[in-house]
C-alpha cells in the first residue's frame, strides 16, 4: 500500500513542494512532457494534481514535523526505495496504460516486478532510455550478458549508437516471441532486411521460417553473426553423400594436406551463395 494512502492533499500543490525541494533533479521535470501546463492530460495541466498526481497526496508530508518524529513519506520511484513496485507502477499505468503500455500486463517486465522507474527517469529533460545512443546502457543494467554480446566482432551497431534495443524489442510487452516489435522474429528482421522477405522462387525454407535458427542477432565471433561456423553449421542439417557429409578437419584449410573449397571464405556459400533463397530459374541448389 502507498505510504501516504488516505492522506489529504497539500495546500498549494507544487508551490508547497518547491518551498523545500529544489535543484536540477527537481527542476528538470519542468522541461519534460509531464510538466506541460498546455496539455490537459499532463500532471501540470489545468486542474491536475501537479507533483501529487504521481507522488500521491502530500498534505501530511508537508506539515511541520515535531522533533524526533519522522516526516511522513510520499510515493517514491526507483529501484532503491521502500514504495512497493506495484504502487509505483499503478501511478504510471493510471495514465500510460491507455497508450504505450497496453501490453504491459502480459510482458515479462511486469511479471518480474520491474518498476517503470527502473528504466525511465521522468524527472530528466533527456530520459536516457528514450534516446537510441543512451538506451542500451539502461537495458544492460539488468540484461548484463547482452552488454558483452554487443562487443563481439560481428554484431548490430548498438555499441556505436546506431541501433537501440527498442528498434527490435518492445519493453512494454507484446505477444511476440522475445517481446519483438513485429509479430514474428522474421518480420522484425525484415524491418531493416526487407530484401530477404521474398517470397522467392527457390526458398531455403528455414530462412523463411526463423532467422534465429542460424543467426545470433546480439552478436557473434563468426562472420554474418551465425551461431555456428560453416561448414559445421550447414552440416547440422545436410548429410547427402559426397561433399555435404565429408569431415572437414584442419587439413582442409588452405595449405593443409587436403585443402577444400568448403572451408575458407564463405565455406559452403562459396558455391551455394544464395543461402537466403534464389529467384533465378537455375537457383534450385542456391548456386545462382
Amino acid at each position: 500500500e502507498a505510504p501516504n494512502a488516505g492522506a489529504p492533499y497539500s495546500a498549494k500543490g507544487a508551490d508547497t513542494c518547491l518551498s523545500c525541494h529544489e535543484g536540477p533533479e527537481v527542476n528538470d521535470v519542468f522541461h519534460t512532457a509531464h510538466a506541460q501546463p498546455g496539455d490537459a492530460r499532463s500532471p501540470f495541466g489545468k486542474g491536475q494534481l501537479q507533483c501529487e498526481a504521481c507522488h500521491g497526496p502530500g498534505g501530511n508530508h508537508a506539515k511541520r514535523v515535531k522533533k524526533g518524529e519522522t516526516r511522513p513519506s510520499m510515493i517514491r520511484f526507483g529501484r532503491d526505495v521502500e514504495t512497493p513496485v506495484a504502487v509505483q507502477n499503478s501511478m504510471c499505468l493510471g495514465c500510460h496504460e491507455r497508450a504505450q503500455a497496453a501490453g504491459w500486463h502480459i510482458g515479462p517486465h511486469d511479471a518480474n516486478k520491474v518498476s517503470c522507474a527502473a528504466c525511465h527517469d521522468s524527472h530528466q529533460a533527456k530520459d536516457a532510455v528514450l534516446a537510441r545512443a543512451t538506451q542500451p546502457d539502461v537495458c544492460f543494467t539488468c540484461h548484463v550478458a547482452e552488454r558483452g554480446q554487443f562487443t563481439k566482432p560481428f554484431s548490430h551497431p548498438v555499441r556505436q549508437g546506431k541501433l537501440g534495443c527498442s528498434d527490435c524489442h518492445d519493453p512494454h510487452g507484446t505477444t511476440a516471441e522475445k517481446q519483438l516489435v513485429r509479430a514474428t522474429i522474421n518480420e522484425t528482421c525484415y524491418e531493416c532486411h526487407a530484401e530477404k522477405r521474398g517470397p522467392l522462387l527457390w526458398e531455403h525454407e528455414p530462412v523463411a521460417e526463423n532467422c534465429d535458427d542460424c543467426h545470433a542477432p546480439h552478436g557473434s565471433t563468426n562472420p554474418g553473426m551465425v551461431k555456428l561456423r560453416g561448414p559445421l553449421l550447414c552440416q547440422s542439417c545436410h548429410s547427402q553423400q559426397g561433399h555435404p557429409s565429408f569431415a572437414y578437419g584442419p587439413q582442409s584449410l588452405p595449405g593443409g594436406s587436403s585443402p577444400a573449397m568448403a572451408v575458407p571464405l564463405g565455406n559452403c556459400m562459396n558455391c551455394h551463395s544464395q543461402v537466403h533463397g534464389s529467384n533465378h530459374p537455375s537457383g534450385s541448389t542456391l548456386t545462382r
Binding site: E1, A2, A5, G6, A7, P8, Y9, S10, A11, K12, G13, A14, D15, L18, S19, N27, F30, H31, A35, P37, F44, G47, Q48, L49, Q50, G56, P57, V87, S90
Partner: peptide, 21 residues
C-alpha cells in the same frame, strides 16, 4: 490506494514552477 477527496486546485498557482522560458 485509497484516494482522498479531490482538492480544490484553483489556488495551485505553480508560481515557483521553473517552466522553461
Amino acid at each position: 490506494q485509497e484516494t482522498p477527496a479531490a482538492p480544490d486546485t484553483s489556488a495551485w498557482a505553480c508560481s515557483k514552477c521553473p517552466f522553461p522560458r
